[in-house]
Write a protein that binds this DNA or RNA. Structure first.
Lengths: 394, 394
DNA sequence: AGACAATAGTGCAGAGACCGAACGAATGGG
DNA sequence: CCCATTCGTTCGGTCTCTGCACTATTGTCT
């Protein structure tokens, strides 16, 4: 903090955060909640209105006597953040406005692994253009979620998209003319979980996503855990069990060889079973697993229970180390969650306290794009003065 | 940030931090380093001098032409922070001044487990008085390190000091008239490692301390990992290996049953061996282990190699999850480190990249008290205006 | 020896931001 | 119809930083 201009900016941000986290309220309540005086809040609100970030809302009758208050609320019309996801078998994009409302959302099935990265990026950018089009809200930023480790804007490792290693993902969206951030999909999903929904504002959360591999995102103390080289929270290749299955990373015993989607399919069906047909869409096969389990097929249920137990063993380590308030299961874990939770909690309860903190994600496959859009909007909330004034001050 | 008074405070803190982290320097360089103007820095330095936090030092001749600069440096004479440690078989206390210099240090062997907590606290408080006495520096705070999990000022769990559970440790130091903080010893040691010495300012670090059990302290993104209930970084009871050894916590397979001091002694000597004599001081026995290892005793070396391998297996999990720049081994691990590092790094290298990031602590058994004293001093650096003016402004 | 350039540090007027108190606005109750 | 209550604004005051001018001190060049 150096200049009083930054004080102004910080206080504008405090008012915005208050409105975002606690909903619309009067200037008087904003003053009480932020500790600022009513005079200052009036001035701050006026500036935020000029920047198109908040609007005056309804008049609210007080409970008893007194002048009615004018609600102040976030203005969702002016801006939005864009999240876009490149995953193994689909692309997705989403526009989120400052109020937390999803403005546009789209998804495109695509065999990403079979195409050149440049080709995929062109289609993803087209998807972004589609999401941006036809709405008054100006996009303020773009975040790209990729299933791998990212350094800067470049993919460093991507077990399920090996051709993407070394790709500068941000460059593929240069035509959008927006600030572009590239990040790991599980990390962004974790941020999505703590930014909205039932776990909003939880400061310590672990997100696990089941894909072909297993991804993890960890939030501690309200911050995303990154680690010294940006590889923190890498749960897929934890060496938990001295198992013999060889992982894509070349080692044995990695957690994802135990609880990844491949492990489930192997355990649930013999070679020759349609579930093991590598040419079939993974989503289709997963739907069939769910159908068999619901029909009570013993082999399937046993396989799912095995995954649940394996998850519990690993989750015990994560719970002991991170002490999260909640462990959220996303990706395919959420889809088959009803069959996982009991064995998972049983295994977890043997090892740590409070096994009930494991829950299923309600965001589905939109978690990553939602988190990405949230990240893209963040600069507006952090520094409201970066948003231009709408009309010249009189 | 609400008032411009807090701007002043933040800028005073910025100047102090600059001097602490980068050493003495002129006002002009402070201005360049903090981004403030020279005029502002002059004003800030004047106030810090009035509060007894910095002093003017030597005149430095410039390399070529120009007026010589007056160095400004931290004043270590006025204040100190106190760290005190209650451990299984000793008490220790240390006074640290703002320059990072240890002013007084003392240690007292004591069979803490055999005494009532109140009795031990009385002796610890006497130790603090001893450290405070006879120096002009006024203590600004006191931090107590205990080998267990702490909530507020109360011990929640302490495997090796079971009688202490529920003890209000801060109350035992009320007679000192200082703000008292109580914290886990491994957490404080981790803070000590990142606050001074070869790993100063490392933002991501894992500290492991070998005692009867195993303690862990984790710093991520420059912050101590606490978790939702303050139990984060609890490494001792990680269920890593499906071993059969029963842990003090009642479960099996906990890491500390594999790499704790008890495991080492069990592996290094048969029952009846003097090393296994429970009546003997642990330090003595540890010294004998080192002596035997240095003499080349095969059984001892094998036992130590086993510990090293076990450490490597667990460290692989920690490295994968936290991605620390460095893993520091403290406690007994550091004392026998020369025999652990090779097998440890071998086991680690099989599982993660960069096994060389594991190193031995150079702080020895003073890590916890040092970290505690650092924590006690922190409020002065965070908010210099909390320190009273020495002389009334003219 | 003297002028000059370079660097360090201070003095001062001004602008920006918040605060506190007083004031006008809007409403329900007696 | 008056008053208490609550909301929001206006205005003067204070604090802090900034930018520029100015002094201080030294080495170098002529």
């Amino acid at each position: 903090m150096q200049t009083q201009g930054q004080v102004r900016s910080a206080n504008l941000a405090a008012v915005l955060a208050c409105l975002r986290d606690g909903g619309p309220r009067s200037r008087a309540r904003l003053a009480a909640d932020t500790g600022l005086t009513k005079a200052t809040v009036s001035s701050l609100v006026a500036e935020l209105v000029e920047r198109g970030l908040v609007v005056e809302g309804a008049l609210v009758r007080p409970g008893s006597v007194g002048r009615p208050s004018t609600l102040v609320e976030l203005d969702g019309r002016g801006f939005c953040g864009i999240g876009v996801e490149v995953n193994v078998d689909y692309l997705a994009a989403l526009a989120l406005d400052p109020t937390g409302t999803v403005r546009r959302e789209t998804r495109l099935a695509l065999d990403v692994a079979a195409l050149a990265p440049a080709e995929v990026l062109a289609r993803a950018s087209a998807l972004v253009s589609e999401v941006r089009a036809g709405q008054g809200a100006a996009a303020v930023g773009l975040t790209v979620a990729v299933p791998g480790q990212v350094q800067g804007a470049v993919v460093r490792t991507a077990p399920n998209l090996p051709r993407w290693v070394g790709t500068d993902v941000a460059a593929g969206f240069a035509d959008q003319g927006l600030p572009v951030t590239v990040a790991n999909d599980a990390d962004l999903s974790a941020l999505a979980e703590v930014s909205a929904g039932p776990h909003a504002h939880v400061a310590d959360l672990v997100y696990l996503t089941g894909e072909v591999g297993v991804g993890g995102g960890v939030v501690t103390g309200g911050q995303l855990l990154r680690g010294s080289t940006g590889v923190g929270g890498e749960v897929g290749h934890l060496a938990l069990t001295p198992g013999d299955a060889v992982c894509g990373c070349g080692r044995t015993g990695c957690w994802e060889t135990v609880v990844g989607l491949a492990a489930l399919l192997r355990a649930a069906a013999d070679p020759g079973d349609p579930l093991r047909d590598p040419g079939r869409d993974l989503e289709d096969r997963l739907a069939e697993v769910v159908a068999r389990a619901r029909a009570g097929d013993a082999r399937t249920l046993e396989a799912l229970a095995g995954i649940g137990t394996g998850l519990g063993v690993g989750a015990a380590v994560l719970v002991a180390l991170f002490d999260p308030a909640v462990v959220v299961l996303g990706g395919y874990f959420a889809e088959v969650g009803e069959f996982l939770l009991d064995p998972l909690r049983a295994a977890l309860a043997q090892r740590v306290e409070d096994a009930d903190r494991v829950v299923l994600s309600t965001l589905g496959f939109t978690a990553a794009v939602r988190g990405g859009a949230h990240v893209a909007l963040q600069p507006v909330f952090d520094n409201p003065t970066s948003v231009p004034l709408l009309e010249a001050p009189a």
